[in-house]
Simulated scan of single mutants.
Amino acid sequence: MGKISSFFRNVSSEMRKVSWPKRKELTRYTITVLSTVVFVALFFFVIDLGITAVIDWIL
């Protein structure tokens, strides 16, 4: 039981040392991630359409 409480004390201590991003930075990072996800999803959607068209043309 002592190991578990020691672990959580160490976790709490380390969490106080974390440098959390400011609201402006967090907003910028969130927009960057979301726009990247949308871009990659659209990219693979277009690639999938192209592969489907090629397969339909072959068959």
Rank of each mutant, 00 (worst) to 15 (best):
Asp56Tyr: 02
Thr30Trp: 06
Val40Thr: 10
Thr52Arg: 05
Phe44Pro: 00
Ser13Ala: 10
Lys17Val: 00
Ser6Phe: 07
Glu14Asn: 11
Lys3Thr: 12
Leu26Gln: 10
Thr30Leu: 13
Thr27Met: 08
Ile51Lys: 00
Arg9Ser: 04
Leu42Trp: 10
Leu49Asn: 10
Asn10Tyr: 03
Thr52Asn: 10
Ile51Phe: 03
Asn10Trp: 03
Val38His: 01
Lys3Asp: 15
Glu14Thr: 05
Thr36His: 05
Ile55Tyr: 14
Val46Tyr: 11
Ser6Asn: 13
Thr30Tyr: 06
Ser6Gly: 09
Gly2Lys: 08
Arg9Phe: 03
Phe45Thr: 09
Thr32Glu: 07
Ser19Ile: 07
Phe39Val: 15
Phe44Asp: 00
Leu34Ile: 03
Phe45Leu: 13
Arg9Pro: 01
Met15Tyr: 09
Val11Phe: 04
Val38Asp: 04
Ser12Gln: 12
Val18Ile: 14
Val38Tyr: 00
Leu42Ile: 14
Arg23His: 05
Gly2Val: 10
Asn10Ile: 02
Phe7Leu: 11
Lys3Gly: 14
Val11Gly: 04
Asn10Leu: 01
Phe43Glu: 05
Gly50Tyr: 01
Asn10Met: 02
Phe45Glu: 06
Leu34Gln: 05
Leu26His: 09
Ile51Val: 13
Phe8Arg: 10
Leu42Asn: 06
Ile58Phe: 05
Lys3Trp: 15
Ser13Asp: 07
Val40Ile: 14
Met1Asp: 09
Asn10Gly: 03
Ser19Glu: 15
Val33Trp: 00
Val37Glu: 02
Phe45Arg: 10
Thr27Arg: 11
Lys17Trp: 01
Phe39Thr: 12
Val54Cys: 04
Gly50Arg: 02
Ile58His: 07
Phe7Tyr: 14
Thr32Trp: 07
Met1Ala: 14
Trp20Cys: 01
Phe39Asp: 09
Val11Asp: 04
Trp20Glu: 02
Phe7Glu: 03
Ile58Gln: 08
Arg16Ile: 10
Pro21His: 04
Leu42Glu: 08
Met1Trp: 06
Ile31Asp: 12
Phe39Lys: 08
Ser13Phe: 05
Met15Cys: 06
Ser35Lys: 15
Thr32Gly: 02
Val38Trp: 04
Ser13Leu: 04
Arg9Leu: 10
Trp20Tyr: 09
Leu26Pro: 00
